[in-house]
Computed example of a mutant assay.
Amino acid sequence: MGAEVSGVDLSEPLSEDQLRIIRDAWTEHQVLVFPKQELGPETLLTFSRNFGELDNFSSQPFNRHPEYDEIFMLSNKPIDGKIPPGSTGGQNWHTDLSYTTRPAKATLVYCVEKPLVGGDTMFANMYDAYDTLSPVLQQFLDNIEAVHDVNLITAKRPPEIVAEFARLNPPVVHPAVRVHPESKRKALYVNPRTRCFVGMTEAESAPLIKYLSDHSISPKFIYRHRWSVGDLVMWDNRCLTHLAVGDFDRSEIRHMLRTSTMGDYFGRYEDENAVAEQKRTAGDKKLAVELSTLHD
């Protein structure tokens, strides 16, 4: 897992042959590192669009770039004197947006500033995590689904943002094992943001979730990226988990720009009726406000 791509300037338009090589390498290696790039928000967005429809981060709007909704700030750099809410995000093992019905496909992160020491990102190969399970456990997991819950995110955020984050993202159901659409390989799709398995209690699920989460981050499955300014790292959320290592001096700046492409798979809400009622209630409130405005 992991490959470095050289000989390409991502700030310039790429040919179809170049894009084909990059896509093929991405499928094979899951994580691609493009060192020594010079990208601004516009060129980052242009390159990212080669890999699908971009997420506008409506499920987590608190850390969007002030000028570009499709760029998410991974940063402790103050904006108007305040540190962004996502400065401690991603510090438990996870797959991006697994708590939504359309989890991310590609994630791309560009390093603008970094601390002197630390602030790495670690990736775990979920193909290997699945392949090294016993055939009996593989067969069991092939036939069950798991509930992913945004409330299991460990990042420290203000209470009002935590509450809004949960409101925007009701618990969702995904298969415990996903088949990658390009490689056709099976990948484990369970991590510490998994609350339980469908049809099992949380007490029954907890030991197995812990075992699978611990198993998947065995050192032999991991690539650890030590950032340099100008690195663009692109990874495949369909077949790995990752972790932002929070081991750096918080008085130093770690400033990254992130984009994500919308996934090619759709899950479902754990409680479809509750979500439908919530949407209806929100629609009624919006209509009431509009009618009130018209009346005034």
Rank of each mutant, 00 (worst) to 15 (best):
D80F: 03
Y110D: 00
Q138R: 15
N63Y: 10
G118K: 12
E70S: 14
V147P: 06
L133D: 06
V109E: 03
N63Q: 06
G118D: 03
G119A: 08
I83G: 04
L97I: 00
N76D: 12
Y127L: 08
P85F: 13
V112C: 08
D96H: 04
F62P: 00
F140M: 07
I79S: 05
I83P: 07
L97R: 08
G118L: 11
L133F: 02
T95C: 09
E70L: 06
P115R: 15
V112D: 10
E70G: 00
R64D: 02
R64K: 14
P103R: 10
D96I: 03
T107N: 13
A104N: 06
E113T: 03
R64Q: 13
S87I: 05
F140W: 04
T121P: 10
S98K: 05
P66W: 09
A104L: 02
V147C: 04
S134D: 10
S134H: 09
S134A: 05
D96E: 12
Y99Q: 02
S134Q: 07
N63I: 00
Y110Q: 07
A146C: 10
E113C: 03
N92Y: 02
N76Y: 15
L141Q: 04
D120S: 14
T132H: 12
W93T: 03
K105W: 09
N92C: 11
T132C: 03
